[in-house]
Design a protein around this nucleic acid. Sequence first.
DNA 1: CACCTTTATAGTCTCAGTGACCATAAAGAA
DNA 2: TTCTTTATGGTCACTGAGACTATAAAGGTG
Lengths: 246, 246
Amino acid sequence: MQGYDKYAFEPFAVTVDLAVFTVRAGRLHVLLVERGQEPYAGHWALPGGFVLPEESAETAAGRELAEETGLADSDGLHLEQLRTYSEPDRDPRMRVVSVAFAALVPDPPAVRAGSDAARAEWLAYGTQGPLAFDHDRILADAHDRVCAKFEYTGLATAFCPPEFTLGELRKVYETVWGAELDPANFRRKVLGTSGFVDAIPGAARLTGGRGKPAALYRAGPATALHPPLLRPSTVPSDISPEGKPS
Amino acid sequence: MQGYDKYAFEPFAVTVDLAVFTVRAGRLHVLLVERGQEPYAGHWALPGGFVLPEESAETAAGRELAEETGLADSDGLHLEQLRTYSEPDRDPRMRVVSVAFAALVPDPPAVRAGSDAARAEWLAYGTQGPLAFDHDRILADAHDRVCAKFEYTGLATAFCPPEFTLGELRKVYETVWGAELDPANFRRKVLGTSGFVDAIPGAARLTGGRGKPAALYRAGPATALHPPLLRPSTVPSDISPEGKPS
DNA sequence: CACCTTTATAGTCTCAGTGACCATAAAGAA
DNA sequence: TTCTTTATGGTCACTGAGACTATAAAGGTG
C-alpha cells in the first residue's frame, strides 16, 4: 500500500459492463449492442463503457444505463453490482478491468443506440449467440444472481409496472425461473410475506382479457422476504459430487 | 467501447483489499495491518496491495494472502470476491479502485508482516477501532456476506481443521452468528443435509477435555445446502412491526 | 468408590410452511 | 346458455424446525 507512483505500472482501464434484463411477452430479454469494430466486430456484447475520472463504478453504470435505455435512477429500476472481471487477457488491446452490473427494468422502453454501438436491441435470453470478450460468462453470472435473488428478495417487482396483479407478478417469476407455479399457493405465499406487496383497495383490472378481474398491488417496502419464496425444482441437483465454488 | 487510448484518462490504480477471518478461542478474528505512513499512519487497515500487470484480481488476492499468512491456495482455505469499491475520493492520493475479497482460514497461522505494513495482527472482530480509508465498510460488508453464506453453503468448514467434530462445527456457527444453537437440532440438520459433512468411521476425539468423545467428520463435497441452515433470530426485523396473517 | 458435571447422541412433540389439490367467483367466448 | 379462463378461497397431508427429554460416555471431586 505504498509506492503510489501513478506511472509505476502500465495503466489499467476501468470499465463497467451491464446485463440489463426485462420481461417482454412472457420471455426474459437482455439488452445487447452490436459491436462496430474489432475486436469482435459484428458480435453482440453487453452495453458498457469507461468509468470517467470523477465517477464511481455505480455512477458510471447508471449513466450508461440511462444512455442506452433512457431510464433514470428513479422508477422501479434496479441496478446492482455483480462482480469484477479482471483477467489480464480479457481484452486483447490493453489491460481492462470491468466492474459488471445487473439491471432490471420494468418495461422495454425504446432503445437508444449509444454513441459507441452500431445498434442496441432486446434479445430473448438464451437466443443470443456467443458474445464478445468474456460477456457470456458475465451474462450467465448475472442471470444466476437474478434467479437466486428472486427467492429471498422482492426484486421481482422491478420487472413489473408500478401497479400490477398477482398474476402478472407470478408470470414474472415463471418467466425468470422457467417453471410453472401454482396460482393459489403463489398468492398465499406472497400475501403471507408482509411488506412484499401492498394492496390497492378497490382497484381491479383484467389481465389477459379473460377471466375474473384481479386486484392490483404495488411493490411493498420489504427488501428481504421472510419466509423466502423458494424455487420449485430446487431439488438437490447441485448437491452431490460437485458444484461451483461460489 | 472504443477509443482505447491508454493515456486518454488519468490512470486508475487497481488494488485488492482482503478481509481475512478466522475463529480463535471462540471468537471471530480479522487480520489487520498497521499503516506506517500517511495517510492514516498508525491506523489499522485491511491487508492488500496492487494488482500487478500480469495478474487477475483473484491471483493478486491469493498472493497477498500468502504473503501475509503463509497460506497457499490449497488447504481448507476459502477466498471469494466480495465487491469493488470505486468512489473517486476513497484514497486521497490518487484514483484507486479496489476489488475486495473475503477470506476464511482454518487456524491462525503465524502472522508474517508484509513488506508494506508496520505489523500485522489478528484482532477480535468488533474490537478494532476505525480503520483506514473505507475499510470499515468493506469489513462490515465482508462480515455480512460470511454470516449470510453460512446459512446456505458449507462454508463454515473452512474455519475448521481437516477433521472436526460436530461440536466444533457448531461452535464455529455460534461464534460467527453470535447465537447459541441447540446441539441436538444442529446435529440433526447437519447430518440431514447430504454432502455437508462426511463421517470418518470409527474415529472419535475428546473436544473440550470433558464429556463423551465425539465422532469425527470431514468437509463434504456440497457447496449449497438443501435445506439451508437458517439463523435463529432471523425474525422479520426489517419488515413491518406486524405479525403475518395466519 | 459413588456421584457429579460435561458433552455427545437419540428420540418425541408440536407447530408453521408448503405442495397438491378442490371449490367457487367473475369475466369473455362460442 | 354453456364453456373456458383467470382469480381467489379453502382443505389435507407431509416436511422441517424449535423446544424438550432421555441416555451414553468421558473426566472431576468427595
